[in-house]
């Protein structure tokens, strides 16, 4: 078997540039970005959310394998998408005629916290880590469920606005509590 890739750290787009703690105004902007996208996803305003993604977006979700503390960590892949794939997902779940997973829509609430941000020297690229707790209540199942995750993002500033260039989501589960993970993290 091919080993799963080690946890991918978001890479420095500008080479070996030293990262520093993001300045306060940048941090606030980043925080508002994360809060606003959570709101847009919960409200199912997928087109608005899509506009926040850089065209070269790399979006990857993994979950964990239970391993001995002395063994090399492993993950299993949940999804590995580019912009075209994300658009296809959105086309499906935002069209009531094409989905039962999201029609009737589930109730979701995304709680974002523990945000830490590092900046490059020109303050146009940011390594951002955040914790995400997603509440989801599917229409068909009475019991809601929670999924906790850590997100490692690369945000870039282009034409004055922040865009999500990379997102690596690690779900804190080894058996996904639902068979339907149609939502974005």
């Amino acid at each position: 078997m091919i080993e799963s890739a080690p946890v991918r750290r978001v890479e420095d787009p500008a080479g070996s540039e030293p990262w520093v703690r993001a300045a306060e105004p940048d941090y606030v902007e980043i925080r508002e970005f994360l809060f606003a996208e959570a709101e847009q996803l919960d409200a199912r305003h997928y087109d608005q959310w899509l506009a926040r993604l850089a065209p070269e977006i790399e979006y990857r979700v993994v979950a964990r394998v239970v391993r001995s503390a002395s063994a090399e960590p492993r993950e299993f892949l949940v999804l590995d998408d580019r912009q075209v794939d994300i658009k296809a997902r959105i086309d499906q779940i935002s069209n009531p005629k094409l989905t039962f997973a999201e029609n009737p829509p589930p109730f979701t609430r995304r709680f974002v916290s523990n945000i830490r941000a590092q900046s490059n020297s020109t303050a146009d690229a940011f390594n951002v880590e955040s914790y995400l707790l997603t509440y989801r209540k599917d229409a068909a199942v009475e019991t809601p469920y929670l999924i906790s995750a850590v997100r490692r993002d690369l945000l870039v500033r282009t034409a004055g606005a922040l865009r999500l260039r990379k997102r690596h989501v690690q779900l804190d589960q080894s058996v996904i509590a639902s068979g339907n993970l149609a939502s974005f993290f």
């Binding site: 979700v61 999804l79 039962f100 997973a101 229409a139 996904i176 068979g179 339907n180 993970l181």
Partner: peptide, 18 residues
């Protein structure tokens, strides 16, 4: 996985109905 996994475009629909 995009089509037949827990986040699969096919599977997410099946499991909801199952």
């Amino acid at each position: 996985l995009r089509n037949f996994g827990v986040a699969g475009l096919f599977e997410q629909e099946d499991v909801e109905l199952w």
